[in-house]
Simulated scan of single mutants.
Amino acid sequence: MIGVSLGLIGSGGSILAIPILVYFFGLTPEHATTHSLFIVGITAAVAVTRHHRLGNLKIKAALYFAIPSIISLVLSRKYLLPALPEIIADHGIRITKHMLMMVLFSVLMLAASVSMIRKSGNLRSGQASAGRLMVLGLFIGVVAGFLGAGGGFLIVPVLIFYGGMTMRYAVATSLLIITINSLSGFIADLLNQVAFDKRLLVTVASTAMAGMFGGLYLSTRIDGKKLQPLFGYFVFAMGLFILARELFFPS
């Protein structure tokens, strides 16, 4: 499922990986972020090679976006994430680090999905300024670092509505940015000696790569204008699931 999502819509890997790792494999959100960065990053990297051969990559735009994004991502994982206490608040309502991360994750997903659904008929063309892409990259980097997401569920809408790309180019360029962001974040975690489960990484990443080829095949047969609202509804459903899970059935 993670691989199919990345291959088909250039996103959704972390949207699936984080809940799967937390709810089905029992990892904490903080440890799930490290595993998600590797799984999503290595799978996206394979997809990028395919899109490069098809000529779908906007490499210059990706670099404008990715370079500041890497900086903010690495800094947020090194300083912001470890600085948060395990218990954020305990005044009648107990808010844990786990709950905060997952709720923020779901709220961002819902916001991105509404944007995609409402503007599904408004695919724009043209070029965004380098400065705008860099500012947006800084913001996405913080989100990706804090939540352990490649950020594709935010990157794709940004590239369409602010980067002036069609869905096809946004998907491919998003995968390149996700690769750079995710693997940079994972390497930063390695340097910070964050623990991870090697067997889990290999197992999930290898099956995700297999699914990704299926997603790439489907992407060549589905019109981008139909794919955009489909992506929006998918992200919306996952956001609602995570939000309901954390608010009504907290761990």
Rank of each mutant, 00 (worst) to 15 (best):
S76Y: 02
V235N: 06
I177F: 09
T166S: 14
L191T: 13
L73N: 00
L201H: 13
I18P: 06
L75Y: 10
L21T: 11
S113M: 04
L201V: 14
I180S: 03
F38R: 03
N192E: 13
I9K: 05
I155C: 07
N56Q: 04
T166P: 09
G214C: 12
L104S: 03
P229T: 06
L243W: 03
G137Y: 04
S76M: 00
S113Q: 06
S106C: 02
I87D: 03
F213L: 10
A170N: 02
L200A: 01
F153H: 10
A89D: 02
K119A: 05
Y169T: 01
A47Y: 03
L243C: 00
G55C: 08
G12Q: 15
V142H: 03
T33D: 01
G224Y: 13
S206C: 12
V48G: 03
N181P: 07
S115H: 12
Y233F: 14
I20Q: 04
R77E: 02
L176G: 07
S129W: 11
T28C: 03
M167C: 07
A47K: 04
L175I: 02
N181M: 08
L218Q: 06
L108Y: 03
M109D: 01
G55Y: 10
G214K: 02
G10C: 05
D90Y: 14
D189K: 12
V143Q: 00
F146P: 00
G10W: 08
V171G: 06
M134H: 00
A130N: 09
G152L: 08
A210V: 08
I20E: 00
A188S: 14
F25D: 02
